[in-house]
Design a protein around this nucleic acid. Structure first.
Lengths: 148, 148
DNA sequence: TTCCTTGCAAACGATTTGCATTGGA
DNA sequence: TCCAATGCAAATCGTTTGCAAGGAA
């Protein structure tokens, strides 16, 4: 039985090969840590999760390489903390829930009908502002289930 | 004829007085710099704009105080740059346009009907995710008029 | 072999803090 | 007056880089 994350890894392998970027063991470790999460992770969180098997400097370089290759994407949230997550084409278009109590960030996929409405809003705003939208993100702040 | 920014300053004075926070000359300078902009400003931009009359360390402290008092709000955008702007209750609820070419960030107010649709989406997403929304932000990335 | 990648340590830029001084309510 | 706010310099934090050593094509 095919494991969906096997498939994910194969997609990433193909992408990196196309871009002539080597998939080394350290890079695999970092990708696995990001794939395991259900939201964007900070560099410090990734570092902790992989139990420091990849030194910080290499971790930063790895993240930069993967971002340039389009495998992961940056997310900017509270307190100037930079977070990374798998790119949309790997994990699907989604939005974020930011808890104002615990500071956590979670991914959320919204139903197609709502996503359609949202795209409609974005395109109308773009026309009105003489701006050409290529992407959008809805960030919802509030209290998560745990902190309610 | 009353100047709208006089009114703004009075609102801020009242708010700070309520919170027993002193409105010193340095803080006035910083607030004026933020009120003059039409989008969130980075610390470096503010520092330049006030011609270094407030040293960096004091500027950081001032921004922290104003944020705690609810007069200004943080905004997180590309490259881990932290930006500040007047709080929503002072400048009205709005969203952001992020240019992927020049890195600029601009404020945009969207028409009430679209804002209503957006609130509707947010509340439906919240219910579905067992999350209690208190605020939302639509960040639209793309090409600004200048960079098209 | 030939580059690319890694690890370490040092460098860097942004932000924070300690402390003595100044200034506002 | 009296405590909060300021300015400076030093400390700290997250991130980047130079360089020599290790590893994959």
């Amino acid at each position: 039985m095919p494991n969906p994350s096997d498939n994910l890894e194969r997609q990433i392998e193909r992408r990196l090969a196309e871009q002539q970027v080597r998939l080394t063991s350290g890079r695999r470790v970092v990708i696995a840590a990001l794939a395991a999460g259900d939201g964007p992770r900070s560099v410090a969180e990734i570092h902790r999760r992989i139990r420091r098997r990849v030194p910080l400097s290499s971790l930063y370089r790895t993240l930069a390489v993967l971002e340039a290759a389009g495998v992961i994407a940056l997310h900017h949230s509270s307190k100037g903390i930079t977070r990374y997550e798998l790119a949309d084409w790997l994990r699907g278009h989604h939005h974020h829930l930011l808890c104002i109590e615990c500071g956590g960030v979670d991914d959320i996929e919204i139903p197609p009908s709502l996503e359609k409405d949202l795209r409609h809003i974005v395109s109308r705003v773009g026309v009105g502002a003489n701006f050409h939208p290529t992407d959008h993100a809805l960030e919802i702040a509030g209290l998560c289930a745990k902190c309610t």
